[in-house]
């Protein structure tokens, strides 16, 4: 056993230089070459304020497309889901409350599952196309725009990837909405 201790320590040290030092430096250097310099994608609104494009924000007023419920209140210094089981009676009561609220705010609209359930990260930047469509009438009324204009904006904002589900980035959609009203 003894003859293994010293090589183990020495090997650990050189491997740390390789796997932590050189590896991180290589990737940091590569990130420096990208336009965002490794700090994550940003988008800017009409007033020149910039936001993380992929960090979801809380939107719960009538004049914005609402984002999904969040178990961490969209505080991106942490992250997480509700971790509630599908049968948990307290949880189901909470969902029922969200369903009722959504119905009240958007009468007559169909209710997609994503808008009444919390995401895994609590920072989901997206909503489904159905969730955006269900809010079009409310937004149009609140902003005194025609439903057609708002619907066009929604249609324009749909992200249609080659693989995976269609989705809409709520922040981008709402920034577009603000620009529409100006």
């Amino acid at each position: 056993m003894k003859q293994h201790i010293l090589p183990a320590i020495r090997l650990t040290l050189v491997l740390m230089i390789l796997c932590v030092g050189i590896y991180s430096l290589l990737l940091s250097g590569f990130a420096r070459l990208t336009p965002e310099k490794g700090s994550g994608e940003k988008i800017t609104d009409g007033n020149g304020k910039s936001y993380y494009a992929n960090i979801g924000q809380r939107f719960d007023t009538t004049i914005y497309f609402n984002s999904r419920p969040s178990a961490v209140a969209y505080n991106a210094a942490g992250s997480g889901g509700s971790n509630k089981g599908p049968n948990n009676p307290d949880y189901l009561k909470e969902v029922q409350q969200r369903v009722d609220d959504f119905k009240q705010k958007n009468p007559g609209a169909s209710i997609p599952a994503d808008i009444v359930t919390a995401s895994g990260s609590g920072l989901d930047p997206d909503i489904s196309v159905a969730a955006a469509n269900a809010q079009v009438a409310r937004i149009a009324a609140a902003r005194k725009l025609s439903q057609q204009t708002v619907q066009q904006l929604v249609n324009k904002s749909i992200d249609r990837p080659f693989f995976g589900p269609q989705k809409i980035n709520v922040l981008k959609l709402n920034i577009g909405l603000d620009q529409l009203s100006h």
């Binding site: 599908p86 209710i111 995401s119």
Partner: peptide
């Protein structure tokens, strides 16, 4: 509760993955 099941079970899941 009258929620459309079209997206599947979304509690704890992200929209971009489905």
């Amino acid at each position: 509760m009258g929620v459309s099941p079209a997206l599947g079970a979304m509690e704890g899941k992200e929209v971009r993955f489905g």
